[in-house]
Amino acid sequence: MVSAVDLSASVGAVRLKNPVMPASGTFGFGADAARLYDITRLGGAVMKGVTKEPRFGNDQPRVTDCPAGMLNAVGLENPGIDSVMKQELPALARMYKGPIIANVCGFTVDEYAELAARFDESQDVAALEINISCPNVSHGGMAFGTDSVAAAAVTRAVRRASGKPIWVKLSPNVTDITRIARACEDEGADALCLINTLLGMRVDLRTRRPALANTFGGLSGPCALPVALRMVWQVYEAVRIPIVGMGGVSSARDAVEMTLAGASAVEIGTAALVDPSALIRVIDELPRVITEMGYARYADLVGKAHQGKG
């Protein structure tokens, strides 16, 4: 009885009808994705990263690929908080009635707090995803996510500025992700999202130059899944707050694997760039995969891989 599977998930106080959300930056602000698939099916809607000022982003080329993934250096292109509050967010709230998660990116601690306070004003925002892990901007972003003191400072400032649930999105480009994870938990983060992209590069043989104008970019896609699983596993052991798992999830089986490693919900990004229906396909396939494992509730799978080990 595949239809009997309960797909509901929760990330702390945020309830999701299913555990599948788009990863920030692969969904725009909803309208772009709504042209391609039924976004009302999603468990949650994660908006593109928003900065204080509008940003054009990096020069071309911004993307390239490898056999099992891609690199991007988009550089946080977005219309800025004023436009998002006035246009993009209300438009998304008209199309999508589930939890909307606002992805926030600052260049200083104060900017993170200011952006969090702005989103705090909106009834449409269910949670904040604090992006301290963007690898593609020269200041801010990942600089906060690779230093536990700075990560703590951002979390503390955002905690003071907003009463919304705070999900901190972590960078994998660190020696010990559990140190950063614990620093965020200690300052009142409600959940942790991981992983953002892995810093990488490619070189173009024709031009003999880096393939990306930004030289480095964030690696994502199926090749990132094992790294993401390892880090979700480590962080699950290190903190008590829930984890949103992401990094290479492309199928329902991947989503379940991420869940067994410790994720309470998943975000899917790169897979949707190759197959726009990827998220819907995962939602449709989850009941069968869960049934085949002998379970009836998605939530019962969270962290199961940790049980019974010595």
Binding site: G25, T26, G28, F56, Q60, R62, N72, V74
Partner: peptide, 20 residues
């Protein structure tokens, strides 16, 4: 260079007189 080709990723943005 494009990643998605369908408007999701902003990988292909170019500058115009009315913005990216």
């Amino acid at each position: 260079r494009m990643a998605c080709g369908v408007g999701l990723c902003r990988g292909c943005t170019c500058m115009t007189l009315t913005g990216g």
